[in-house]
């Protein structure tokens, strides 16, 4: 089976799941209290003409399934209608917010991986030492503390008391944005970092007691090989498997952190949209979240396949 075929199959599966999700998302409009016309009209004057216009625009007089098809057809062309709050097209609203949240999530991912994996590895390989206990203690804190609490603490210490970082906003330009989003990214990554460190530690503990580690030591291999080619690669396998879901949680986690740091990202948009019953925006965000989860899982599986020759040779026989 060729690489393209394998990936093609997975993409097809993603498309099927997305259709199911889209149906549920479409149903949001009808599950929300109040009539659809009223919802879509928002705070505007409810004249009979306005209602009729809305009915015509959203095909509300058609059978439900036809309505869904119209909606799906638009959604595929990235047309989710207009935001009820701002009357802007939903896509351009998302377009403003998404880069900020992506930056934040990407930043948090880098922090979580660059700190979580090495510290977990070190703790696992130096089982029982002070370093191991420190990592275990800190990760326990990280797992149990909610991200907004960490965010407020960071804000107070580094933003207000020490004044090292700006305390709100997303910043303009790369360097400024990096500075603005550092504290939020740390707050957002804390839980995931702790989970990754824990998983890596557990994996490294298992790897450490494997015969191949002893055999590698018995051949006098240098420490960097033992850490890299042996411990890191072997312990990364279980971590990679779960990383898809873990990283996807950054999207949902962003809701709280963006509120705390007053960042105009996707999270704060979602909160506002839900509060104001801005159904088109909620629908678009929900679809986006589902797509992100599925794609991240696909990427995690592909990464696993690349890392593990036992899987690689089964999935892609020569």
């Amino acid at each position: 089976m060729s690489v393209a075929l394998v990936i093609g199959r997975r993409l097809l599966a993603i498309a099927v799941i997305m259709i199911v999700v889209s149906f549920l998302v479409f149903a949001i409009l009808f599950a929300t209290p109040g009539s659809p016309e009223q919802l879509l009209l928002g705070a505007g004057p409810t004249t009979p003409e306005a209602l009729a216009a809305v009915r015509a625009k959203y095909h509300l007089d058609e059978p439900l399934f036809t309505q869904y098809l119209y909606w799906l057809g638009d959604a595929v062309r990235l047309d989710f209608g207009e935001s009820i709050q701002t009357s802007q097209p939903v896509v351009s609203v998302l377009g403003e917010r998404l880069p900020i949240t992506l930056f934040l999530a990407g930043y948090a991912t880098v922090i979580a991986l660059l700190v979580g994996i090495p510290s977990g590895l070190l703790a696992g390989l130096r089982n029982g030492t002070a370093g191991d206990r420190l990592v275990t203690f800190v990760t326990t804190l990280g797992i149990s503390a909610p991200s907004f609490a960490i965010g407020i603490l960071l804000l107070y210490v580094f933003g207000i008391t020490l004044g090292w970082f700006p305390i709100f906003g997303a910043g303009e330009g790369f360097a400024d944005r990096l500075l603005h989003l550092t504290l939020p990214a740390v707050a957002l990554s804390a839980t995931v970092l702790a989970i990754i460190a824990r998983q890596t530690r557990a994996a490294a503990l298992t790897v450490e007691s494997q015969d191949y580690m002893t055999f590698a030591r018995a051949r006098g291999l240098p420490r960097r090989l033992l850490f890299g080619r042996y411990a890191l690669r072997n312990s990364s396998l279980p971590v990679v498997t779960s990383s898809g879901l873990v990283l996807a949680s950054f999207l949902t986690g962003a809701v709280l952190v963006e509120q705390v740091f007053a960042i105009p990202g996707l999270g704060s948009l979602t909160v506002a949209a839900v509060t104001n019953k801005d159904v088109p925006v909620v629908q678009a965000v929900a679809l986006l979240a589902a797509l992100v989860v599925l794609v991240l899982n696909l990427l995690a599986d592909l990464a696993y396949t690349v890392l593990d020759p036992r899987v690689r040779k089964v999935v892609f026989p020569q």
């Binding site: 015969d211 191949y212 055999f215 590698a216 080619r229 042996y230 072997n234 593990d308």
Partner: peptide, 9 residues
């Protein structure tokens, strides 16, 4: 054990 002595990767 030759089945566990070599790095599987």
């Amino acid at each position: 054990d030759p089945f566990t002595m070599l790095n599987p990767l």
